[in-house]
Amino acid sequence: MTRYWRLISIFMGASLSAQLEYRVNFVINLVETILRVLGSLLGLIILLGENKSLGGWSFHEAAVVLGVFTLFDGLIGLALAPNLNRIAEGVRTGTMDFTLLKPIDSQFLVSFRNINLLRLPDVLLGLGIIVWAVLQSPILPNLGNLSLGILLLLCAYSIVYGIWFMLSTTAFWFVRVENITELFMGFYRAGQFPVSVFPGWVRTLFTFVIPIAFITTIPAQALTGKLEQNSLWIALGFAALLLFLSRWFWRFALRSYTSASS
């Protein structure tokens, strides 16, 4: 275990020093993230304009959802995309060979090799919005709600990881899949709103088919004390299922790996 932690820190040091080369990017990305959050807040204000309610959520409660959305958007950019999007490249160019030959777990290696610290501000900003919005609500969350919230955030991360990982792993069959994760992101953008704002069947779609609700809405429910008991079990179930599926899918993919010849 300690070996894996040491590896992670070495990987991160190396990718951090590569990224400091691009200081203009750093500033631009920071501005972009702030603008994006401002844009989403503006969107919330516009939506709340007349009803003063968004599918039963107040402005600050909806802002918690937005915070969780921004947090995961950041985490995807920080830790998932920089690793998993390279699977396709590795398969195409044949560098996957070297990865598979290393004496550590290959799924670990392809998952935690790089980190894109450019996106760290997104993560911090997401956390900031969550804290700010939670503090605005009339009843502060108790310790139980808080720990439930953290547990559900971990489940949410497992769900995102599982989906993203499996999408990226399709590279073993379809070589040109560098943008296949847009399939997920296209739907994920709906997660910046509480799932209850969507009309009937769209809500069902985002809850059970593409479990966006369990990534943003459900953890936010826990943090604002609106969680229903059932949601917790379903979230845990989804998380476990997707982690297991990702493991199984990786092994399945490795079996059909044909090393690039030229």
Binding site: G13, L16, S17, A18, L20, E21, R23
Partner: peptide, 9 residues
């Protein structure tokens, strides 16, 4: 190294 990167940043 990292120190060099920071410096040139």
């Amino acid at each position: 190294g990292l120190a060099g990167s920071l410096k040139s940043f």
